[in-house]
Simulated scan of single mutants.
Amino acid sequence: MMDHARDLASVRDATKRLLTAAAELHNARAPEPSRLPGWTRGHILAHLARNADALVNVLQGRPMYASGAARDADIERDAPRPLDVQLADVRESADRFQDVAAVFVDWSRTVELRNGVTDQAARVPFRRWIEVELHHVDLGIGYELEDLPEEFTQREIDFLAARFRGHPDVPGLLIKQDDGSMIPSGAVESVSAQQLAGGYEPPLPALTVSGQRAELLGWLAGRRDGSALHVEGGTLPSLPPL
Rank of each mutant, 00 (worst) to 15 (best):
S108F: 02
L174W: 15
A102C: 03
S190G: 04
V170R: 05
L113N: 12
A94E: 08
A193W: 13
D158F: 08
A187K: 11
E112Q: 13
M64C: 06
R163K: 14
D84N: 15
A161P: 00
G116P: 02
I183Q: 13
L113D: 08
D138I: 05
A94L: 02
Q86S: 07
H135N: 13
L134I: 12
D84M: 08
R71P: 00
R127V: 13
Y143P: 00
G199E: 12
A101M: 03
I183T: 14
A69F: 02
E133S: 09
D74A: 14
I130D: 10
S108M: 04
V100T: 15
L174P: 04
E131H: 03
R128V: 01
I157N: 07
G68D: 15
S185L: 03
D119I: 11
Q98N: 14
P63E: 09
P184V: 08
V85M: 05
D99V: 09
G199V: 07
L113F: 09
A73E: 15
A69H: 06
E133M: 06
A193V: 06
F104E: 04
R91W: 05
V137N: 06
I183F: 10
G198Q: 14
V124K: 02
I183S: 13
T153C: 10
Q154N: 14
L174C: 02
F126M: 00
L160I: 09
L148C: 08
A79Y: 11
A102Q: 10
A162V: 08
V90R: 05
L83D: 11
D106C: 00
H136W: 09
R163M: 14
P184R: 10
V117Y: 14
P63M: 05
P82K: 12
D138Q: 06
R128Q: 11
R81P: 01
A88S: 14
A193T: 12
H136V: 03
V188G: 05
V188N: 01
L113K: 06
P125G: 06
Y65S: 01
H135G: 05
H167P: 03
D95M: 03
E133H: 13
A101V: 00
D78R: 09
R77W: 08
F159Q: 08
E131N: 08
L196P: 04
A193P: 04
A162G: 15
T118N: 06
A122C: 06
S93I: 03
I141R: 09
D138M: 07
S67L: 03
A73L: 00
S108C: 02
Y200W: 10
D138K: 08
A161C: 15
V117R: 15
P125R: 09
Y65G: 04
I141K: 12
S190Q: 09
P82V: 10
A193G: 07
L139N: 15
R127Y: 14
E144H: 14
F164S: 04
N115E: 12
R163N: 12
F164N: 00
V100S: 01
I183M: 12
A102P: 01
R96C: 01
F126V: 00
A197N: 12
A193Y: 08
A69D: 15
E92A: 13
Q177A: 13
D74K: 09
V132F: 11
I141F: 07
F97Q: 06
A69P: 00
V105K: 12
P149K: 14
G142V: 06
D84C: 04
L145D: 11
R165K: 04
A69W: 07
S190T: 11
F97G: 02
V85C: 00
Q195L: 15
